[in-house]
Simulated assay, not measured.
Amino acid sequence: MTLVYAWPPVGVVASEWTIDAPVNVSRSLITGARRVSATKRRRRMVAIEVSSMARGSNGAGYMEMLKRYLDGGVNLIRLESRPVNWWADAQIEATGRQSREVQWRSGSDDVSWDQDGGEVIWIDGTLLGGVAGSDDMFPTLTVSGLTPNRRAARPGEFVTLKAGGAVQTGQVVREAFANAQGVAVLRTFEALTGSGIVNIGISESAVFEATSIPRAVQPLNGDWSYSWHFSQVFEDEVGGFEEVDPWN
């Protein structure tokens, strides 16, 4: 098992969340035909720039402690994606496109709600329903419950479909708008299956290794930053993950 640390509560001023898919390209000496094949596993690649002075001016301290926990790259980090498009739009649009299940507790005990012998699920936010399908050769997700005649999703945003207790994640290919009935058809890169609860504009989560450990010099005046670069690590490559959060 490899230790996987949570990301500390720091101010991120720039970020990138993308995919690296290395390929090998060759050509026939006789016909010039192009042959392409994948050479390595496809991985998420992340770049993050952290402000030392944002969120209470504790960024530098958190970064130095994170460096110690990562131990030069021996240990790993769990990261969540930040909006691909402008972050301010994502915050404004989240209200009408996301919901979460409310967990009730009494002291240290979980409280469940039942009605007529069935469990009652409490939801906070805007509850959206979705049905996976296809449009010619492209996967789709038909979403209902949206604000009528408004933008439903932007290209590059992540969307989840909770169907049958399992949560599937896809990425939106193109801009989509809801019709007068609050229904929109999202074209997704991944093929989802089933029907259930939908959230649009959520974060994707994965585990990474730091490909370089940053150093940052504090100036006499003004902010300074730590620039990180990460490459995804899969659980089967390290014999399992043990998740740790030292910041709570």
Rank of each mutant, 00 (worst) to 15 (best):
245 D>K: 01
42 R>G: 05
118 G>M: 05
103 Q>Y: 00
203 S>G: 06
128 L>G: 07
109 D>I: 03
74 V>W: 06
220 L>D: 09
95 T>L: 15
159 V>E: 08
34 R>E: 08
198 V>Y: 05
205 S>N: 07
160 T>S: 15
190 E>H: 12
159 V>N: 07
115 Q>L: 09
166 A>R: 15
152 A>D: 06
179 N>C: 10
217 V>D: 06
171 Q>P: 00
79 L>Y: 03
17 W>P: 01
211 T>K: 01
176 A>P: 08
195 S>Y: 08
36 V>R: 02
100 R>P: 00
200 I>V: 15
60 A>T: 04
3 L>K: 15
171 Q>H: 02
55 R>Y: 14
223 D>R: 04
64 E>V: 07
211 T>I: 07
72 G>M: 04
150 R>V: 06
119 E>M: 09
162 K>N: 13
63 M>S: 14
167 V>G: 03
123 I>W: 15
132 A>F: 11
127 L>N: 03
186 L>W: 14
197 I>M: 09
129 G>N: 13
127 L>D: 02
211 T>Q: 03
228 W>F: 08
166 A>T: 15
131 V>R: 15
103 Q>G: 05
131 V>L: 08
44 R>M: 08
123 I>N: 14
194 G>K: 08
185 V>G: 11
209 E>Y: 03
89 D>G: 01
49 E>F: 01
105 R>H: 09
96 G>P: 00
18 T>W: 04
75 N>D: 07
28 S>C: 05
179 N>W: 08
23 V>L: 02
55 R>P: 00
139 P>M: 12
236 D>S: 08
86 W>K: 08
241 F>E: 04
137 M>S: 14
39 T>F: 01
110 D>W: 01
145 G>C: 05
121 I>W: 04
174 R>V: 14
134 S>F: 12
95 T>P: 00
197 I>G: 00
7 W>Y: 12
121 I>T: 15
153 A>C: 11
168 Q>Y: 07
75 N>P: 02
10 V>F: 13
22 P>A: 03
242 E>L: 08
42 R>V: 07
84 V>H: 09
35 R>L: 07
104 W>R: 12
226 Y>D: 03
137 M>T: 08
59 G>H: 11
3 L>N: 12
10 V>T: 11
139 P>F: 14
168 Q>S: 11
130 G>N: 11
101 E>I: 08
218 Q>L: 04
60 A>K: 02
8 P>T: 10
149 N>S: 15
69 Y>S: 01
29 L>P: 07
186 L>F: 14
40 K>G: 09
232 Q>W: 01
33 A>L: 04
183 V>K: 13
209 E>D: 03
15 S>P: 00
125 G>K: 04
9 P>D: 11
140 T>P: 09
8 P>R: 13
28 S>N: 12
116 D>E: 09
223 D>I: 01
193 T>I: 12
67 K>Q: 11
74 V>K: 15
145 G>H: 06
203 S>I: 00
50 V>Q: 10
106 S>D: 12
79 L>E: 04
245 D>R: 02
134 S>E: 13
97 R>S: 11
57 S>E: 12
31 T>V: 05
